Simulated assay, not measured.
Amino acid sequence: MDQRHKARLFKELHRRSGAFLMPNAWDAGSARLLSSLGFPAIATTSAGIAFSLGLPDYAGAVSREAMLERVGQIAAAVDLPVSADLEAGYGVEPEQVGETIRQAIAVGAVGGNIEDFTGEPSAPLFDLALAAERIRAAREAADAAGLPFTLTARTDCYLARVDNPFAAAVERANRYREAGADCLFVPGVSDPDVIAALVKEIDGPLTVVMGLSGSALSVSQLAALGVRRITIGGSLARATYGLIRQAAVEMKEQGSFSFADRQIPDGELCRFFAAFPPI
């Protein structure tokens, strides 16, 4: 599929009834493994990419250039729509956010998240007026590219623990929708009653993230609540690093190698990856 066709398919997923699960990859290998299992689209995870580069998941730890290089590798590795985790847009000003969208499209993404988290403890979220302008600039950049790009606006009201996070999330999400966002993302929510209320009050498709501590809801339960899109953020990458640490501790402290019982055999992996064209 060419990029335009992938973009149309991805946009259509947000217009259908029911929920779809979009897992998050951090490199070409994880993307290809996920793509082989029947998911309709995949996303990138900025946290997983940062960890794979030996860096923390902090704003600014990974440059826009490095992040988009990896996004491009993931998009080129699979024949599925790829939505990019673009953090806060790699700049404060709306023009910088617009440039990030242009570059994400250039490397093959057909969707992307822009968040309102600043990384500053004293003011964790961008001023609402500025945050809306940043989404508007992202929308204008995507439209100028001539691609039906799916723009997701993420608000971190719950993760930043602002006062009255529900009201703040609803207000911000609806302002971002007015500014041109196709989908609204409110991470950090796991209570089903709160999720149902967000679906009711937010004027647009809602994305939630599962795989965080305390997030025990299933895809069918989330669909029944009215959620449109489900991601897993960096949780799969963190689980992978959890296995590495467990294996390392076992080898160091016990001198044993039971972790190898859960590996995919070398021959199977070689046959699997050989079926894909070179990137």
Rank of each mutant, 00 (worst) to 15 (best):
Ser52Ile: 06
Ser52Asn: 12
Gly54Phe: 14
Leu55Cys: 13
Pro56Gln: 12
Ala59Gly: 14
Ala59Ile: 09
Gly60Gln: 07
Ala66Glu: 10
Glu69Lys: 15
Arg70Phe: 08
Val71Ile: 09
Ala76Trp: 04
Val78Phe: 06
Pro81Thr: 06
Val82Phe: 08
Ser83Phe: 02
Ala84Thr: 03
Asp85Tyr: 04
Asp85Gln: 11
Leu86Pro: 00
Leu86Asn: 00
Glu87Trp: 02
Tyr90Asp: 01
Gly91Tyr: 08
Val92Pro: 05
Gln96Asp: 13
Gln96Thr: 12
Gly98Glu: 05
Thr100Asn: 06
Ile101Leu: 15
Arg102Trp: 12
Arg102Thr: 09
Ala104His: 02
Ile105Cys: 09
Val110Gly: 03
Glu115Gln: 08
Glu120Val: 13
Ser122Leu: 12
Ala123Trp: 15
Pro124Gly: 15
Leu125Met: 15
Phe126Ala: 09
Leu130His: 05
Leu130Ile: 12
Arg134Gln: 11
Arg136Gln: 15
Ala137Asn: 07
Ala138Thr: 08
Arg139Cys: 03
Arg139Leu: 10
Arg139Gly: 08
Glu140Thr: 12
Glu140Val: 10
Ala142Val: 05
Asp143Lys: 07
Leu147Gly: 07
Pro148Ser: 13
Pro148Gln: 13
Leu151Tyr: 07
Leu151Glu: 03
Ala153Ser: 15
Arg154Val: 00
Thr155Lys: 06
Tyr158Gly: 00
Tyr158Trp: 07
Tyr158Ile: 01
Arg161Met: 12
Asn164Pro: 08
Phe166Cys: 06
Ala168Val: 10
Ala168Ile: 04
Arg175Asn: 08
Arg175Glu: 08
Tyr176Ala: 01
Arg177Asp: 00
Glu178Lys: 10
Ala181Arg: 00
Asp182Trp: 04
Asp182Gln: 10
Leu184Pro: 00
Pro187His: 04
Val189Ser: 00
